[in-house]
Design a protein around this nucleic acid. Structure first.
Length: 849
RNA sequence: GCGAAAGUGGCGGAACUGGUAGACGCGCUGGACUUAGGAUCCAGUGGCCCAAAGCCGUGGGGGUUCGAGUCCCCCCUUUCGCACCA
C-alpha cells in the first residue's frame, strides 16, 4: 500500500477534532505551559510563509504535550482593520461578512495543516462580546486619566483617510500603504503611554528570553535620556526660555540658542524683526512640509536669526536666538542651547551661519583649537573654560552643573523620552467604537458601563470618501446624554486595532466570560505567556503596546505580572524568487515568464527579466499557496520541508525542488513501516545493535534540539535514523522486535513535524491510543555510547590517520597505536617528539621537530 | 554616519565548551530496474590531480595555539535597525 497523504490526513484531522485533543480545562491543569502564536489578521489568503509560523508553533506544542505538560495553544482573530472596510467600499460586502468568511477559510487552512488549537477558546476582536471589554478598558483608563482627548499635530494618512500613531509611521510613510504621511492639527484620543516610559524601559532588563534585537529596538524607541532643563533669560521677552540638555557640563560653550519654528515664543520674538515677513514665510514653509521632506531638507540645515538674544546663565553673555528646521517641536522643550564645539549638529549650524565656537571640553592631555576643528568633539573629556567645573571629567562635571542649576533655581534634573503618547482614535468604521458621548451641557461623558457594548451599527454607508461612515449614520450619532438626558453626539472615532491585540492573550483564559474582562485568578495562574511566537515586524508596535497595557492591568490589580510574554521567538520570513521587468520595474507573474536559453523574458518586445528574491506577496506574483502543495504531497511534506529548509529564526528561500526531499523522506518512512510489518522474528538480533544505538542517540539529540528550536537539524537527525533503519533492513535484518521498537520511537520523534503519517503508522503498528497523546521517548544512556571509537591522529596538527579502538582504551594504548601507525611513521621518523596531546576518545596529536 | 547580525560546496544548510569542515537534503554524474519516468534503488559528488599519495580550502589580511569556521586585531561585503530626539 503506497503512502497516500490525501487519504490519511483528513482522517486524523477529524479524529483530533472529534476527541478535542487540544482542549485544556484551565481551571484544573497543573504543569501549565502557555504558548501562543500571534493571532492573525484574517485577510483570507494564507501562504506557505504564514504556514511556517503556525507549523513551528504546532511542532513545539505537540512536543510539549508529549513531554507531559498541560500545554495551552489557543487561537483567535485580530479581526478589525482597514482591508475589510476597503473590501466593503470596493465590492459592497459588509466588512463583517468579508471578515467572517475569511476566518472560516483560514480556520480551514489551519485544519489542513494539521495544526491543533484549542478552538473552545476562540476569540474574534470584531465580536461585540470581545470589544465591549476594549470599551470597558478604555473607560477605566479614562477614569484614571490614562485616556485623554487633546488637540495636537498628528500624522494623517491621506490614502487611508485616518490618523496614525507614531509607531505606524515608518520613514515618514504610512506603515500600511506606504503613502507619505502629512501633519494635521486635530483633536484626538490618546493613551498616556509616556507615563509608563520608565517602567517600559527598565522592564526590558528582566526579559532574558527575548531577542536582544527586539529589546534594543524598544529601548531606542522609548529613547530615555538623562540631563537637565535649564532656563535662559530673554530680556526682550520678559520671561525665560527653557532648554533641555543632556550635556549640562558644556553650558559654558553655549554660544547660541535654537528654537523650533513651531516654538510658542517665536511669534513674539520676531514681531519687530526687520525681515519678519521673510521669516514668517519660511516658518510657514517648514510647517507645511511633511516630516519626510523636513528631514531630508534639514540634512543641510536651514535657519533664521530672530534678531533677539538670550543670556547664558553661566557666562552671562548675550547669545543670539536662532530658529532652525532641525529642532523638533515635539521633543524636549522645542528649544536647545547650542554648543557648536561639542555637538555635531550645532557645529554644522554654527559653521554655516558664522557663529563662533568655544571649546569647553578637551580630551585629556590634548588641546583643541576651535578654529581648526573640522567636527565637534562629542566624547567625554575634561572641562575647560568653565570656571566652577574646570578640570572635572565629563561625568562629574554634569553632576556638578545639575547641582548648581538646581541650587540657583534656574532649572532641574530631567529625564526625557522620545516616546510619545499613543494616538488611538481612527476615523474609520471597522473598529471598536470609543464609548464617549459629547454633550453641550455636560461635556465629554463616558458611556455608562451597563450600556456597553456600544455596538457598531451594521447599516452604514460605505462610500470610500473621506470621513468616517459612522459620522454619516444619524441613528448612531444622535443620542441622549447619559448624565442630563439632553440631545448629545456620540464619538464616531473607533480605536486603533492595536488596542484589541494589546490584551487578547489574557482573554483566552476566560474567552466566554460575559461578566468581566477575565478571571484574574486564572489569568495569574496561566500567564505570563511562556512562549510567544510571531514576526519581527511587531518588535515595537504590538509588543510595546501589549507591555504597556499589561502594566495598566497590573496597576488596576487585575494581573500580578508586568511583563506579558516570558519568551519571545521571532520566526524568519519565507522568501521566493520572483521576476521583475528592469525597465518598468513591474513584477511579472511566474506563468507569464518565457524561458530562452535559461534566461527569463517577457512581453511582446521580449524584455529580459531580472530575478529577485523577496517576501511573498501578491504584488510580486511569487506567492506559494498551500493548496496545490498539499494536494500534491500532503500537509506533512509541507510541514517537514518548511521546518527543514533553515533555522526557524532565519529568512528562508522557498524552493519547489527542495520540497521533493521531504516527500521522499516520508515515503521512505512509510515503506520502512510496511517492510517491518512483514518481519516475523520476535527475537533480539545482535546485528540490530548499531540501529538501536542510533535510535537512542537520536532521542537524545532530537529532544535537545526541540528545546532549542533547532527544528531543521532535528529533522536531519531523524533522516539519519531512518537511514540507519534502512541499512538494517537492506542488510537483511529480520528482527521485528528490534526494528519496530526503533521505528516506533522514531515515529514519536517525528510526530511534531509530520503528525498525520505518524498517527497512521502508529495505528497500523497497533500503538496504544493516538500517538499525539503518547509520551515522548527517553534515551537509555547505557545504549547511546559507541563501543568502538574513531580516534584521529594528527602530526603537528595535521590529520594523518584514524584509529578504530575499543571504547575502554587508555591514553597509553591510544598514543602507542598512533605512534606505530604506518601512515604516521613517515612524518615522525627521524624527528624529535616534543609533545603529545591526547583528547580522550577523540584525538592524538604528535608534535615533532 | 551610528548600532547589531551575518559571510562555509552549484544551492538550502551542519559542525556542543577550539579537536576528522561540509552532517542532512536539493541539484548534478554514472549505474540498476522499467514501455515510460519529475517513480524507486545503488554508487559518486569542495578544489587541484587520470588515480593514489599529496597539496589547497570556511569573505580578505595578520595574530594567539600542538591544533582555529570557532578566539583576538585590521579590512571588505551583505542584511536589518536607527538616523538630526539636543
Amino acid at each position: 500500500m503506497p503512502y497516500d497523504p490525501q487519504a490519511i490526513e483528513p482522517k486524523w484531522q477529524k479524529r483530533w477534532a472529534a476527541e478535542k485533543v487540544a482542549e485544556v480545562d484551565v481551571s484544573r491543569a497543573d504543569q501549565k505551559y502557555y504558548m501562543l502564536n500571534m493571532f492573525p489578521y484574517p485577510s483570507g489568503d494564507l501562504h506557505v510563509g504564514h504556514g511556517r509560523n503556525y507549523i513551528l508553533g504546532d511542532a513545539l506544542y505537540r512536543f510539549l504535550r508529549m513531554k507531559g505538560l498541560a500545554a495551552l495553544n489557543p487561537m483567535g482573530w485580530d479581526a478589525f482593520g482597514l482591508p475589510a472596510e476597503n473590501a466593503a467600499i470596493k465590492r459592497g460586502i459588509h466588512p463583517g461578512e468579508w471578515t467572517r468568511s475569511n476566518i472560516a477559510r483560514e480556520k480551514e487552512q489551519f485544519r489542513r495543516w494539521g495544526i491543533l488549537y484549542d478552538w473552545s477558546k476562540e476569540i474574534a476582536s470584531c465580536d461585540p462580546a470581545y470589544y465591549r471589554w476594549n470599551q470597558w478598558l478604555f473607560l477605566e483608563m479614562f477614569r484614571r486619566d490614562l485616556a485623554y482627548r487633546a488637540k495636537a499635530p498628528v500624522n494623517w494618512c491621506p490614502s487611508c483617510h485616518t490618523v496614525l500613531a507614531n509607531e505606524q509611521v515608518v520613514d515618514g510613510r504610512c506603515e500600511r500603504c506606504g503613502t507619505v504621511v502629512i501633519q494635521r492639527d486635530l483633536e484626538q484620543w490618546f493613551f498616556r503611554i509616556t507615563r509608563f516610559a520608565d517602567r517600559l524601559d527598565s522592564g526590558l532588563d528582566s526579559l532574558e528570553h527575548w531577542p536582544e534585537k527586539v529589546k534594543t529596538m524598544q529601548r531606542n524607541w522609548i529613547g530615555r535620556s538623562f540631563g537637565a532643563d535649564v532656563q535662559f533669560e530673554v530680556p526682550s521677552l520678559g520671561r525665560p526660555i527653557t532648554v533641555f540638555t543632556t550635556r549640562p557640563d558644556t553650558i559654558y560653550g553655549a554660544t547660541f540658542m535654537v528654537l523650533a519654528p513651531e516654538h510658542p515664543d517665536v511669534p513674539a520674538l520676531i514681531e519687530s524683526a526687520a525681515d519678519g515677513e521673510e521669516i514668517r514665510g519660511w516658518i510657514e514653509k517648514v510647517r507645511n512640509q511633511t516630516n519626510l521632506e523636513r528631514q531630508s531638507e534639514a540634512a543641510g540645515k536651514e535657519g533664521r536669526f530672530t534678531g533677539q538674544s538670550a543670556i547664558n546663565p553661566f557666562t552671562r553673555e548675550s547669545i543670539p536666538i536662532w530658529l532652525g528646521n532641525f529642532v523638533l517641536p515635539q521633543y524636549g522643550t522645542g528649544a536647545i542651547m547650542s554648543v557648536p564645539a561639542h555637538d555635531q549638529r550645532d557645529f554644522e549650524f554654527a559653521r554655516q551661519f558664522g557663529i563662533p565656537l568655544r571649546v569647553v571640553v578637551q580630551p585629556f592631555g590634548e588641546m583643541l583649537d576651535a578654529d581648526a576643528m573640522t567636527e565637534a568633539f562629542t566624547e567625554a573629556g575634561q572641562a575647560v573654560n568653565s570656571e566652577m567645573i574646570d578640570g572635572k571629567p565629563t561625568q562629574a562635571a554634569k553632576e556638578a552643573m545639575i547641582g548648581e542649576v538646581e541650587r540657583r533655581k534656574i532649572g532641574k534634573r530631567m529625564v526625557r523620552y522620545r516616546l510619545r503618547d499613543w494616538l488611538i482614535s481612527r476615523q474609520r468604521y471597522w473598529g471598536t467604537p470609543i464609548p464617549i458621548i459629547f454633550c453641550d451641557g455636560c461635556g465629554t461623558v463616558p458611556v455608562p458601563e451597563e450600556q456597553l457594548p456600544v455596538e457598531l451599527p451594521l447599516d452604514v454607508p460605505f462610500t470610500g470618501k473621506e470621513g468616517n461612515p459612522l459620522a454619516r449614520t444619524p441613528s448612531f450619532v444622535n443620542v441622549e446624554c447619559p448624565k442630563c438626558g439632553a440631545p448629545a453626539r456620540r464619538e464616531t472615532d473607533t480605536m486603533d486595532t492595536f488596542v484589541d491585540s494589546s490584551w487578547y492573550y489574557a482573554r483566552f483564559i476566560s474567552a466566554h466570560d460575559s461578566q468581566k474582562i477575565f478571571e484574574s485568578s486564572l489569568v495569574n495562574r496561566w500567564l505570563p505567556v511562556d512562549q510567544y511566537i510571531g514576526g519581527i515586524e511587531h518588535a515595537i508596535l504590538h509588543l510595546l503596546y501589549a507591555r504597556f497595557i499589561c502594566r495598566v492591568l497590573y496597576d488596576m490589580k487585575l494581573v500580578d505580572f508586568e511583563e506579558p510574554f516570558t519568551r519571545l521567538f521571532n520566526q524568519g520570513m519565507i522568501t521566493k524568487e520572483g521576476y521583475r521587468d528592469p525597465d518598468t520595474n513591474a513584477w511579472v507573474p511566474l506563468d507569464e515568464v518565457q524561458w530562452r536559453d535559461g534566461a527569463p523574458y517577457h512581453g511582446q518586445d521580449q524584455r529580459q527579466l531580472v530575478a529577485e528574491v523577496g517576501k511573498m506577496s501578491k504584488s510580486r506574483f511569487n506567492v506559494v499557496p498551500p493548496d496545490e502543495l498539499i494536494a500534491r504531497y500532503g500537509a506533512d511534506t509541507e510541514r517537514v520541508y518548511t521546518l527543514f529548509i533553515a533555522p526557524p529564526e532565519k529568512e528562508a528561500a522557498w524552493s519547489d525542488d527542495g520540497v521533493i526531499g521531504a516527500f521522499r523522506f516520508l515515503n521512505r518512512v512509510w515503506a520502512q513501516g510496511e517492510q517491518i510489518l512483514t518481519l516475523q522474528s520476535e527475537l533480539e538480533d545482535p546485528d540490530a545493535k548499531k540501529m538501536i544505538r542510533k535510535s537512542h542517540q537520536t532521542i537524545a539529540a532530537v529532544t535537545q534540539k526541540m528545546e532549542r528550536f533547532e527544528f531543521n537539524t532535528a529533522i536531519s537527525s531523524l533522516m539519519e535514523l531512518s537511514n540507519s533503519i534502512g541499512e538494517y533492513l537492506s542488510a537483511g535484518g529480520t528482527s521485528r522486535k528490534n526494528s519496530s521498537e526503533t521505528f516506533l520511537a522514531m515515529l514519536k520523534l517525528l510526530h511534531p513535524f509530520a503528525p498525520h503519517i505518524t498517527e497512521e503508522l502508529w495505528s497500523r503498528f497497533g500503538g496504544q491510543g493516538m500517538i499525539v497523546k503518547a509520551s515522548w521517548p527517553l534515551a537509555d544512556q547505557s545504549l547511546t555510547a559507541e563501543d568502538v571509537l574513531t580516534i584521529v591522529v594528527q602530526v603537528n596538527g595535521k590529520l594523518r590517520a584514524q584509529l578504530a579502538l575499543d571504547a575502554g582504551v587508555t591514553e597509553e594504548q591510544a598514543v602507542a597505536e598512533a605512534k606505530a601507525h604506518a601512515r604516521v611513521l613517515p612524518y615522525t621518523e627521524g624527528k624529535e617528539l616534543v609533545k603529545t596531546i591526547y583528547v580522550p576518545g577523540k584525538l592524538v596529536n604528535l608534535v615533532v621537530r
